[in-house]
Amino acid sequence: MRLPCDCSAEKIPNGRRSVCYDHEALESRKEHTPKNSAVGMAAEMGIELLGEEEYRQLQQLEKLDTKTSSWIKTPDDIRESGDAIFGDCRFGRVFVYHNGAESYYAARGFRGWLSV
């Protein structure tokens, strides 16, 4: 069984924001390196990042990330380009975008699934 974790509407916990996408992205930063990556932190917590479809399903239960955004598990072909995807909810719609995987913002964190 997979259960969604962290369904807080906006404020993803402080320790889980301002992170780049994965370890490769973390290693590529030469300056202003974030403390961790979303994929790395999720692994440490024993969870997996939500995929795009899972993120959209979670948004059907409750509108989340209307002022924040969350990294989403990125397909390999997109990640190989150097980018990663993230989602948010604006104007009552779920948007999925791409950004350099090494980027990080104070309002971007991640959401995940816990397998039990």
Rank of each mutant, 00 (worst) to 15 (best):
Y55D: 03
E53D: 13
A38Y: 04
S28G: 13
V96A: 08
D65A: 09
E10G: 01
T33C: 09
E102Q: 14
K35T: 07
E52Y: 00
T66G: 13
A84I: 08
I72V: 15
H98T: 15
T33N: 06
S28K: 15
K67L: 11
C5I: 08
G109N: 03
E80F: 01
V94D: 04
H98S: 15
E80S: 15
A84Q: 11
D65E: 13
P13Y: 05
L50P: 01
T33A: 09
V94Q: 03
D22R: 05
D83R: 14
Q60G: 02
V39F: 06
E62A: 13
I72R: 02
G51H: 00
W71V: 10
S69H: 03
D83S: 13
F86Y: 15
L26Y: 04
S37N: 08
G40R: 01
A42P: 01
E52A: 10
G82E: 05
G109M: 02
A38H: 04
Q57S: 11
F86A: 03
C7P: 01
R16Y: 15
L26T: 03
I72D: 02
D65F: 10
E52R: 07
S70H: 02
D65S: 09
P4V: 07
Y55V: 05
S69M: 09
G109Q: 01
A84H: 07
R17N: 09
G109I: 03
A9F: 14
G51S: 11
L58I: 07
I12F: 06
E31W: 13
K30R: 14
E31F: 12
E52L: 00
N14M: 06
G92R: 03
E44C: 08
Y55N: 06
M41Q: 13
G112Y: 05
A107Y: 12
R111H: 02
I72P: 00
D76G: 00
R17K: 15
S28W: 12
A25W: 05
P13C: 05
R93P: 02
C5L: 12
A38W: 01
C89P: 01
S37V: 01
L49I: 08
I72E: 00
G109E: 04
D65L: 07
A25P: 05
W71I: 11
F86T: 00
A106R: 14
H23Y: 13
R93T: 09
I78W: 09
E52S: 07
C5W: 03
P75L: 04
P75E: 14
D65Q: 08
R108Y: 07
P75S: 10
G51V: 01
R56H: 06
L3V: 12
E48V: 10
S37A: 10
S28F: 13
K35N: 07
D83G: 01
I12T: 14
Q60D: 08
G100V: 10
I12C: 14
G112K: 08
E24F: 08
I12D: 07
D22W: 03
Q60R: 14
S81M: 14
G100C: 12
D88K: 01
R108C: 07
S103W: 02
M45S: 03
M1S: 03
G100Q: 13
K11N: 15
E52F: 00
I78T: 14
L61G: 12
R2L: 01
E48P: 00
G92F: 06
P75R: 13
K73A: 03
